[in-house]
Nucleic acid binder design. Sequence first.
DNA 1: ATCTCGTGATAACTTTATTCTATCAGTGAC
DNA 2: GTCACTGATAGAATAAAGTTATCACGAGAT
Lengths: 313, 313
Amino acid sequence: MASKDRLPVLNQINYFVEVARQQSYRSAAQQLGVSQPTLTSQIAALEKTLGVTLFERSRSGTQLSPQGRMLLEPAQEVLQASLRFSDLARTMADDSQTTYRLGVPSTLGPYLLPYVLPELHARFAKLKFYVRDAPPLQLEQGLLAGEFDLVISPMYSESSQIIAAELFVEPLKFVIPSDHRLAGQQFIEPADIKDESVLTLENSHHFHYQILDICNKLGAKVLRDYEGTSLDTLRQMVVMGMGVAFLPGLYIHSELHRPEALHVCELSNMPIVRRHSLVWRNTAPGRVFFRELAGHFREIIGQQLASAVKVLG
Amino acid sequence: MASKDRLPVLNQINYFVEVARQQSYRSAAQQLGVSQPTLTSQIAALEKTLGVTLFERSRSGTQLSPQGRMLLEPAQEVLQASLRFSDLARTMADDSQTTYRLGVPSTLGPYLLPYVLPELHARFAKLKFYVRDAPPLQLEQGLLAGEFDLVISPMYSESSQIIAAELFVEPLKFVIPSDHRLAGQQFIEPADIKDESVLTLENSHHFHYQILDICNKLGAKVLRDYEGTSLDTLRQMVVMGMGVAFLPGLYIHSELHRPEALHVCELSNMPIVRRHSLVWRNTAPGRVFFRELAGHFREIIGQQLASAVKVLG
DNA sequence: ATCTCGTGATAACTTTATTCTATCAGTGAC
DNA sequence: GTCACTGATAGAATAAAGTTATCACGAGAT
């Protein structure tokens, strides 16, 4: 007869609970700030969609029907669930109180984020990141596919769907074994590197191609037989005398505090660097906040890592 | 700016969940059986009331925003709560699948309901009664106050707000100690009772006044110093020789199967009875079913207790 | 480059819900 | 009886939800 298969209306459920509480249409109406006929018709509508009589009305008052009595608690649960829902929404109305999926290159994340995230947390207590490592190629793909909300990447491929805010420039340091013929000097002439065997990461890393490029210019040869899977293996390979390598400044800043079997230096007059940007889709709803976020990144990096990198912006 | 303090609409939450599931407005629209612009405007309305952007739209598709992602599960919980609510309502749309608060006199309930409720349960598996004992006076008050939905009572006070369906007539048996001078006879002349000491229940029971009445007519005296608090104490008092008593036929039928230190008989040519009705408020939403229920009571009592009582109706 | 197809957004309109004010018709207390 | 109180009803105004037709943009194939 009645009751199409339609969902009831939360507002009506709210009315129901209030009338049940007050045992009176009129006082419930006053409490709810609506007129009494509104309640009459809305409760009637709810009863129709549910197919159940909720109240026993008499000229001398109103009370719950047996069915209404049993439905009262489930109704309150619906309202509570809806309150949880909209409360959560309200707190997240502020973009700085949400959890974002942040993608970082595995050659950067572990050496950058420990310096940044604690301070960021101090500034936005409810801002959270779900951080995932990935090679830059996958980062960009993943960003476009919606697997990430934010990505820190070198931003080598420009696309109209993507917005990048430059964060900082990171030097790549030249690393050689302590017993290498060039060890001991702080600056090395690019020409001296000719014919050196340069080790790199495996080619799923953007890092790989950058090194390839540099080596081509310098005339050094890249040892492709032994490609490291992480910066740590790369370092080990250099220590073991398998060749020389370029290692990111932040890695060295983080991991090579103590003297070791390695010598770290730079090429004179030829700064080799990585550029890092904070990247997001141009359609991302958080884009305004993301831009603000990039500012905080720069600020914090400037405070924490000024000695190791050069902040942009 | 946006977001008045109003409750969201379940329908919109449902739309939200479906679009999130399909990652597409169009296919979600098809799935939901509405047009695509409806979704556009309803999702936009929901976003406005929540103050949060739920989706990241692009010309090539739709996906959840970070906030929407976190709101998806709470949204589903709201829907589930609402489904539980309306499912429960649907099953209770049938008046025979609800729990009613049934009030019975304590001098009747324990001796009647065990014969009735099992068969009633067989006929209406989901029909339940929350049974409470009370003296008939409280029963009627409680019924009017809405503390009971149904009451079995003698229905001595007629009221325009109350509807009563007569169920059956129960004889009151005359009970004397086995060693009483009148013991052994099945029928006793009313005149023989003159000057006997008759025991009764305490006066909160309607039973009390009925006995008082009978005794006045018969010229018997009522022992008011010792009033029993239950039919069982009354029986014990008779066994102990403190007097004689009238006990309800159903009590005797239930409790006195085995021969005992008691003799049970009747007054000849003077049937003493209680009448029992099923009573409810004339405004009770279940009133149609209650009338039907009264029929089932009569039927079942006729089957189970024909030897002890006389069914009416 | 251009075309086509698929995306969500928009406009203009219709239908359905929601709400209001004013009024009615019983009930209960005095 | 009278009066104050209930919830129900009528009719009108407003708000919300739905429709069809169309647009503008991006992606992929030609």
